[in-house]
Design a protein around this nucleic acid. Structure first.
Length: 294
RNA sequence: GGUGACGUAGCCAAGCUGGUUAAGGCCGUGGUCUGCAAAACCACUACCAUGGGUUCGAGUCCCAUCGUCACCU
């Protein structure tokens, strides 16, 4: 649960939409600070593939400075660690309660962002995971039979969700009070975005994405680690097993990015209150109004 | 010019001893969503090249046309 009662600005949107730049500008113009709303940029050592901002300096464990703007919750989780939504929400809550200024939460992970904005009621995980991973879909469905009525067609065939329902003993959709917020979604023509994704991936390779993967392996990370199951990394697994070429890796990253973007858009479309725009002036104007009104 | 093979969704492709709803994959689109979320999952997408014929019934057999490919003179 988030207890913060102040205002908060969200800048969400698909990968490569330019949301980070928008947020940085806005933070300068309204004297705000930035909180990471991206489930991959939280990880240490995953830099190029996650398009993590390059900061000017590190202030403390998870506070960085870029252009004089404070950035929170970047680069602070071990990729081997099993980081959860609860911990994320908690970490954001702590920042919100401590920091002065207008928080701007920026990222592409809809569930992370919404867990804060819509104040999901989460409880720390106490139960040890049962050995459900190896069970078949049918077995899981039978174990979850008490909750299956609450689940939809899609979730009933989804192992993750079934396991979750069994462990938790049901479905939880509780929310606390919604935060006082304004929710921007960067809206870009899909064809233009495709072009940008291409460029961005080319740039990642130029910047040493392959070398980063090699180095991660040397440091002892494997593609089974939570954080490593990310676009820009997991595609290299087959490359190192001599299964596919570097060109194929690149193509897979491209395809995976596009389908990720599609899912992101689907998520953000659910929130009918959100403001879809690609104009910084628009964002600045509306954000300023939002801040100044009582 | 001759012979042969082939022509099934945007792409690849099964079906070819004729018979209820034409496999599957990719791409695409829409969607689900309170602890792996850059995850996982669901749904949708075919006038079977064209025109005839045989048959109770044809993507499936026959003929012609068009097209593609291979080989031959």
């Amino acid at each position: 649960m988030i207890t913060y009662k102040g205002k908060i600005i969200v800048i969400a949107g698909p990968t490569a939409s330019g949301k980070s730049d928008m947020a940085l500008k806005l933070a300068k113009d309204i004297n705000g600070y930035i909180i990471n709303g991206d489930s991959r940029q939280i990880y240490k050592d995953l830099n190029i593939g996650t398009a993590k901002p390059i900061f000017d300096e590190k202030i403390s464990k998870n506070i960085y400075l870029l252009n004089g703007i404070k950035h929170f919750l970047y680069d602070f989780v071990n990729p081997k660690e099993n980081f959860t939504l609860y911990e994320y929400q908690n970490a954001v809550g702590t920042v919100l309660n401590q920091e002065k200024g207008i928080p701007i939460i920026v990222g592409g992970t809809g569930m992370y962002i919404d867990s804060v904005i819509f104040n999901y009621e989460l409880i720390p995980n106490t139960k040890e995971p049962k050995d459900l991973e190896t069970k078949s879909l049918e077995e899981l469905q039978s174990l979850a039979k008490d909750h299956i009525n609450e689940m939809n067609e899609s979730d009933r065939k989804n192992r993750h969700r079934l396991i979750r329902a069994i462990e938790r003993g049901g479905i939880n959709r509780k929310k606390g009070d919604m935060l006082n917020h304004i929710y921007f979604v960067i809206d870009i023509d899909k064809e233009i975005l495709k072009g940008r994704v291409r460029q961005r991936i080319d740039k990642m390779f130029e910047d040493g994405l392959l070398e980063e993967n090699i180095s991660l392996r040397k440091q002892g990370y494997t593609y089974e680690d939570k954080g490593m199951n990310s676009i820009g990394y997991i595609e290299f697994k087959e490359y190192f097993n001599d299964k596919i070429s570097l060109e194929e890796v690149k193509e897979k990253i491209y395809k995976n990015t596009l389908s990720y973007i599609k899912r992101q858009r689907t998520w953000f479309r659910r929130n009918s209150e959100s403001i879809w725009t690609n104009s910084y002036e628009d964002i600045l104007y509306k954000a300023s109004n939002f801040i100044s009104k009582e």
